[in-house]
Write a protein that binds this DNA or RNA. Structure first.
Lengths: 207, 207
DNA sequence: TAGATTGTTAATCGATTAACAATC
DNA sequence: TAGATTGTTAATCGATTAACAATC
């Protein structure tokens, strides 16, 4: 394990490894990179190199110790420390993300904000506040991530308000392209991109 | 424009270009790769090479004709032909995707299926059928994409049913790892991966 | 021992960037 | 002409794979 910035590709594969390892029967104590690679359709050397970056290695002939590997990946991905997030949004989208099960990944979606809350809590019991309490809440609590699910035309405004509250990162679920200062991290989920990629694969698959 | 399989990275950038070009004021008739690159924080040669792959080139000194470029990107991404999709899922998730605005990207989310529909139509008026009508519907209509939003433990079963109906692609919004035959395309949206990547960026940003 | 496995070093491959020529 | 731009060729960079040595 060294301290270089991990590549996005590695970061994308680690949760996949994690899910796979966790899906193995309880009785499994060891897992080899070779088998994991075969099961996931990846090269074995690739998996081994990835694991070398997050753990301190497996044992020849035995592979990696399952328990330790889970711990190592989770530690590397920082799943053990909790980051607090809030959601600002229109009703449906907001509800969904408020109640989304980010299982064991260290995200606490603490509250939702919307213009006119129709209920004081979401389905899973998370509090929903009127939008004008956003600033006070963020300052009173240690909120690091702001999730945006409003429509494209209101997204930049929400983003600016969150940035002004001192948020560290914006997780944008709106289709808008948002502009943030350099010290704020931004990540956009974009179903158009996924869709384009899916259709492209379909097209190529038909030939 | 040639006929090689486009790289996923190109595919991810094209919708970003598209969104940017469309966001320009109505009066804009030309746009240069140089300016676009600067606005989006990309290298200008990269943008120019990307555009060369989808259009038949810009004009020196003037750049690209906006209108044509939009058309070229949309054609390349196949946004003009319509693909029909259906959603199988639990209530909230299903509703959201049924009503999601895939603006102009050529996806028709035609219907939703769930075990016990609480209403005959979604908010935006899309029909919702009981799950046992899935097979009949898929065979009667020309459904190409099956979107899965059920919980992890039921996802593989839904996936198998959809595959048996002759679906061409599975768009998986459940956290499960799904197995499909070679002739079916699969794409999984995975918020854990996004979250891991976001937190990693945050961590590196703080240093 | 033989076989399964890890781990390392070199080769390959693909994507991006740099340098520069062309041209309107 | 000068400047803004495209487009091409070569260089660089990073990620993946191949080959192989080590070892339990």
């Amino acid at each position: 394990m060294n301290n270089k910035v991990p590549s996005p590709r590695l970061l994308a594969r680690l949760p996949i490894y994690l899910r796979y390892i966790k899906s193995l029967p309880e009785s499994t104590t060891n897992i080899s990179a070779t088998k994991m690679a075969a099961a996931l359709g990846l090269g074995d050397v690739l998996v081994r190199k990835d694991l070398a970056k997050v753990s301190d290695g497996g044992r020849r002939k035995l592979g990696y110790i399952r328990e330790d590997l889970i711990k190592d990946i989770e530690t590397f991905l920082d799943f053990n420390s909790v980051t607090t997030a809030i959601v600002v949004g229109e009703d449906e989208g907001k509800m969904l993300l408020l109640d989304y099960r980010f299982d064991d990944s260290g995200l606490d979606v603490a509250a939702g904000f919307t213009l006119n809350p129709s209920a004081p809590v979401s389905k899973s019991g998370k509090p929903i506040y009127p939008l004008d309490q956003l600033e006070d809440y963020c300052r009173a609590h240690c909120v690091h991530i702001g999730m945006i699910t409003v429509s494209a035309d209101r997204a930049q405004n929400m983003c600016d308000r969150l940035v002004a509250c001192g948020i560290h990162a914006i997780w944008n679920f709106s289709p808008a392209h948002l502009i943030v200062p350099k010290n704020v991290v931004i990540r956009s989920e974009n179903l158009s991109i996924s869709l384009a990629s899916l259709r492209m694969q379909m097209r190529n698959n038909e030939k």
